[in-house]
Write a protein that binds this DNA or RNA. Structure first.
Lengths: 115, 115
DNA sequence: ACCTAGTACTATATAATGCAAGGTACTATG
DNA sequence: CATAGTACCTTGCATTATATAGTACTAGGT
């Protein structure tokens, strides 16, 4: 595949991943109290790459929207960490997003099958 | 659900849909030669809403990247239409994007299952 | 005591892009 | 010839992922 085409499809892949970013982050937080590096590590295990510069703004938005809260926890390895967990609102939002994901999923898969 | 939360999840839904836009458009074009209004109508049937202001720039990008070509076709209902079809490059890109979609799909669904 | 490395959070600047809104131009009809 | 319907295009705005740089804390070596 030509480099130009690869760039195009890479960008398209990035767009697809973007769409699922917040859902992914909320899913990880819903599983366990985690701090930023945990989230990056866990998502990497699912091939859903996220970098610091992307994650921190997302966490801020989620915090502002009161979908998550955090508690500071001291660390002996460096500065204190913010451990995040879902609020009730966050759980409600996550449920909604999962349903949205399921619907889009259904639509695209039908489209793929039918064409 | 509060309005504020609804706005947030609506926005998140829009993000998810965005990620699949180009894939959706290419899928529709791969099925049949179509012009813009056809694409909008067909995607609407799958609950994948696209509007003119979104679609035309996408079609321009796809054309510039030589993933699609078009031929002008006269219409007795108004101005001539651009009927789009995939190029070989376009078919290659589509194959790649379908695979990307499948991978992300797998990742998210695993994540949903495991948490 | 100081410096370096590693870790964690924050802030800023940039680029991409979905979308609303408004514009141009073609055909057919009254 | 004016209006309605259709089709394509452009401009401006807002959102947001990402790169980059910065601050601050701990631990360990010299």
């Amino acid at each position: 595949m030509s480099n130009e085409l690869k760039n195009y499809t890479d960008n398209s892949a990035a767009q697809m991943r973007k769409g699922t970013l917040e859902l992914s982050v909320l899913l990880v937080i819903s599983d366990d109290e985690v701090y930023a590096s945990d989230i990056i590590t866990k998502l990497k295990a699912y091939d859903l790459l996220v970098v610091e510069g992307t994650l921190y703004p997302i966490l801020s938005r989620l915090k502002d929207a009161e979908l998550v809260t955090y508690t500071w926890v001291e660390s002996k390895d460096g500065p204190p960490r913010k451990y995040y967990k879902l609020t009730p609102r966050g759980k409600e939002a996550l449920g909604q997003m999962k349903e949205t994901w399921s619907n889009i999923n259904k639509s695209i898969n039908q489209l793929i099958k039918n064409v």
